[in-house]
Design a binder for these strands. Structure first.
Length: 283
DNA sequence: ACCCATGTTCTTTG
DNA sequence: TCAAAGAACATGGG
């Protein structure tokens, strides 16, 4: 779940539920998701008032009244929730914060426990320490072109690299490349300025659309590749209509692996790079 | 029972 | 130094 649009949705939820409230309790059901010692987290949070929220890529920042920042990273299966009474805590709640005024508890939910919770002095310090690039919604086309032009690597792993730009995950990169009609195995520095322009526009389109729908994939436009991904099969049991390209009803979406990650492409929309062309452009 | 998975990070190998 | 591939992490769900 948690790529940029999901994290943005979680951030807005936290902003609504928790800003202005004081943290009066901390439950650690599973310390595995803590990237700081529990005692340090407890000392850093109890009695603090939440003053605001922000986000960089897939990281959510919860700002505290002493200037420090709680950082939430949701790994592969993280989620956020709220509950009033302990028996109502969502399944897989690993950590929860008790909020003074509302009496609600904010839950960090994470079945697979790849998520992490930590404290930092500032969002900027965290960005620097983690070597995170500009947020995918903030990066300009020129900046993207400049970064891609220096790399002789497949474009898909480049877009997944949080140091190049932060926030793009596996399905979004596939969607972006499909919308921009670029093959995932095109070499970074082989992309023309025009192609990078299309890439940048597709990033904006996919992220803003996903945020609008609060990352509920099923509600995305029919023109999106997302509907061809396997996990959507449950929505249309017994049908394989969803495995065809939205633009070419007779062309099947292909599943391959690029950089070790499952990758979906339309062979007609996204022509595979020709090695000779790539090399001549690169040299 | 087996295989796959939205992310990050480290190790190995070239 | 860079890049690619693989593994590890932890666990649920199909």
């Amino acid at each position: 779940m948690p790529e940029l649009p999901e994290v943005e949705t979680y951030r807005r939820f936290i902003d609504e539920v928790a800003v202005g409230q004081t943290i009066t309790g901390l439950d650690v059901n599973d310390a595995h998701v803590l990237a700081v010692p529990e005692a340090e987290l407890r000392a850093g949070l109890l009695g603090r008032t939440i003053t605001g929220t922000s986000r960089l890529g897939k990281n959510c920042f919860v700002e505290l009244d002493n200037g420090r920042v709680l950082v939430l990273h949701f790994g592969m299966t993280g989620d956020i929730g709220a509950y009033r009474d302990a028996p109502d805590a969502p399944r897989f709640t690993r950590v929860a914060w008790h909020l003074s005024d509302s009496g609600l508890n904010l839950a960090f939910i994470d079945p697979r426990k790849f998520g992490r919770i930590r404290l930092t002095d500032s969002a900027e310090a965290y960005q620097k320490a983690k070597k995170l690039g500009p947020d995918a919604l903030q990066i300009t086309a020129a900046e993207l072109h400049q970064k891609l032009s220096r790399r002789r690597v497949f474009v898909k792993p480049l877009l997944l690299d949080q140091g190049l730009t932060a926030g793009l995950g596996n399905w979004i990169v596939d969607e972006v490349l499909f919308q921009a009609k670029i093959h995932p195995e095109r070499i970074g520095n082989s992309l023309s300025e025009k192609e990078v322009g299309a890439l940048h526009a597709a990033i904006q389109l996919v992220l803003t659309t996903a945020i609008q729908h609060e990352a509920n994939y099923r509600n995305f436009p029919k023109s999106f590749l997302i509907h061809a991904r396997e996990w959507d099969e449950s929505a249309t049991p017994g049908s394989d209509a969803h495995t065809f390209c939205p633009r070419h009803p007779k062309v099947k979406i292909e599943k391959t692996y690029v950089g070790g990650r499952a990758t979906y492409t339309c062979p007609k929309c996204q022509p595979a790079p020709v090695a000779a062309v790539e090399e001549s452009k690169a040299s």
